Simulated scan of single mutants.
Amino acid sequence: MTITRTFRFLLFSSLISLFSVATQAKEELLFSIHGSNTVGAKLGPSLAESYLKYLGAESVGVFPTGRENEVKVTGFLPSKGQLVSIFIAAHGSSSGFKALANGEGQIAAASRPIKSKEQAMLSDMGDFSTRQAEYVVGIDGLAIVVNPRNAVNQLDITDVARLFSGEVTNWKELGGADLPVSLFARDDRSGTWDTFKNLVLAKKYKLASAAERFESNPVLSDRVASTPGGIGFWDAVCDFSPEGVVKTLRYAIDLLGEDHVVLGSDFDGSVTTAMDASELVILTETMMKQNFTESEIRKVMGENTRRFLLEQLPEA
């Protein structure tokens, strides 16, 4: 069972600031990204690396800060003769909106739409309910996963809801082995959790108090893999084929408009990602076969990204 959802960057450009430094040796923090672990774990650092290289930075790398799910992307900028950095804290979608409100962050990364209470919290900064306030940078799936030794090979949404609510406590109740169910879920700040809660548990079920909660997808995944009766959920891209990627792009454009969708890939070839720049010709050809307009192809394949970088982020 796979549930499709979008994840977003919520932007407020006037918050972006440069922190001046007194000496050449010091490091300049360009801006900070706070929010979704789905975005911040891999995609966020890759985008930040590409941006620093776009500015002309050299020896760009991703460096841990000593705190879980926080990194700095840093490079040396010859034009300034100093280091420049982008800070990324991936503690869940809600933390991104809070960081915008308290001034800690300049970009919020979210794996869900902004909530009305978050819009109200940020109302002094502008209208965050509009399409102009966000850029969709990818669409992924919500995957329900069990330990690989679990013999149960099919669950419907009701089965999953009953499992995570604690109504089903042993796998034998669903035709599996006599094995207690161990529940692993994302924490309350997670957009992945919000999606699961709304689409699976809905208003009929509540998450069992016995569920172990996690901030990070990889840590949750490891717990499911090491626990015989484990079950969890996290985001997963379902189809990396050109046809699958193009189908996703079509859905996103129809939903949000061609000006608000960018290809979740390395459009300039500066960073190796799951979908490298060498595959862009194949994607363009596939989009043409699927009757995308010239404008849609041009904007999705780079024009929107270039406009976003030039208009929304600080110049070196």
Rank of each mutant, 00 (worst) to 15 (best):
Q132C: 08
D276K: 10
R186L: 15
S182D: 06
S216M: 03
Y51D: 07
G66M: 05
K98G: 00
P314H: 08
M275D: 05
E285T: 10
V271R: 07
E70F: 11
P314I: 14
S278V: 08
F308W: 07
T38L: 05
A89K: 12
R250H: 07
M125N: 01
W171L: 02
T305D: 01
D194A: 15
L10W: 15
E311N: 12
H34I: 03
F19C: 10
K206Q: 15
A109P: 00
V168G: 03
S123T: 04
G244V: 01
K26Y: 11
G257C: 07
E311Y: 01
N150F: 00
Q24T: 07
G75P: 03
A143R: 12
G257F: 13
S123N: 09
T65F: 03
A252T: 08
P180A: 04
V245L: 15
V245W: 11
L29T: 06
S14A: 05
A316D: 08
A210G: 08
I3P: 00
S278P: 00
D187W: 12
G138F: 06
Q312C: 11
D268S: 13
C238L: 15
I3S: 02
N217W: 01
L11E: 10
S32T: 10
L179V: 06
E315V: 08
L29K: 12
V246P: 10
E70K: 09
V21Y: 03
G103A: 02
K206F: 06
L220M: 12
M275A: 04
Y205K: 02
A316E: 07
D156I: 02
K299A: 10
R223Y: 13
G40M: 03
G264M: 14
M301N: 08
L155M: 11
I282E: 09
A225E: 14
G103P: 10
L15N: 06
I3L: 15
G126M: 04
G81S: 08
I114H: 04
D194L: 12
R131C: 09
P228V: 07
L10C: 08
L77A: 06
L163V: 13
V262S: 07
A25C: 11
D124A: 12
K98C: 01
P113W: 15
F19S: 14
L249N: 01
I16G: 08
S94F: 15
L310Y: 11
G103Y: 04
Q106E: 11
I253T: 09
I231Y: 02
Q154P: 12
L283F: 02
K197R: 13
I139W: 00
V145A: 10
V62M: 05
I33Y: 00
G35K: 14
L280S: 12
R162H: 08
G302D: 09
T38Q: 06
T6F: 15
N69C: 09
Q106H: 06
S123P: 05
K172W: 00
V219P: 00
A252F: 03
P218V: 05
R112C: 09
T293P: 08
K172L: 10
A177C: 03
G44N: 05
E28P: 13
Q312T: 14
R186W: 04
T65W: 01
R112K: 12
T227N: 09
G175F: 02
K26E: 15
V181H: 05
I3V: 15
E70H: 11
